[in-house]
Amino acid sequence: MYLDIKQLAFAYPGGAPVLNNLHFTMEKGEIVSLLGPSGSGKSTLLRLIAGLDHPADGSIELNGVTLSDPTTFVIPERRNVGMVFQDYALFPHMSVFQNVAFGLPKQSRQEQRKVVLELLRLVNLEAKVDRYPHELSGGEQQRIALARSLATKPDVLLLDEPFSNLDASLKVTLRRDLRRILNTAETTCLIVTHDEQDALAIADRVVRMTEGTIPLK
């Protein structure tokens, strides 16, 4: 398996368990939607995969490497996991170019520019290269955030509620765009959503999650 999660458990200190005994796998290149009501622990799962939280138990393996188990913990910056947050979190003090270039490895200025422009072309926002985040619409910000995450060529890309902050009337176009971008980038992608239609429209496979676990089929 490309992404292999076993027996994963998580609880906030002194709180009730958020995840327990969760098993989940993904193939390389797969686009999976993780569907569940709010509070079911979807976002927590993303944070555990990204390494932003420490699991209480269980293991996470990605591309043959153990990211996390009771004795190992790879810090987020070494995991090569990309994530687009619900409110995008574009760095407000950086231009679009600087945001996208942020995660790129050290290289010459021209090469950097080439890669960034390529990514912007992918998300169809080449024209906005010198803008600042506050000068962009919500949809544009999301696509820039996507381009920024893709820049590091992540082994897996995590999208947290990608449509929740966007205008419902644009949804159809947005879904199509996202699908196209993900296909072009050939990324393995895990999308968290609470909207069944979103989930079905984008993903190759839909996984349902309830009360901190994924019921076995």
């Binding site: 990204a50 390494g51 932003l52 810090i75 987020p76 910056e77 070494r78 995991r79 090569n80 996991v81 990309g82 994530m83 947050f85 979190a89 760095f91 942020f102 995660g103 490895p105 920024r148 995450s149 820049a151 590091t152």
Partner: peptide, 9 residues
């Protein structure tokens, strides 16, 4: 968090 995921030490 975002910066960390973008490999920033």
């Amino acid at each position: 968090d975002n910066a960390r995921l973008l490999h920033a030490g």
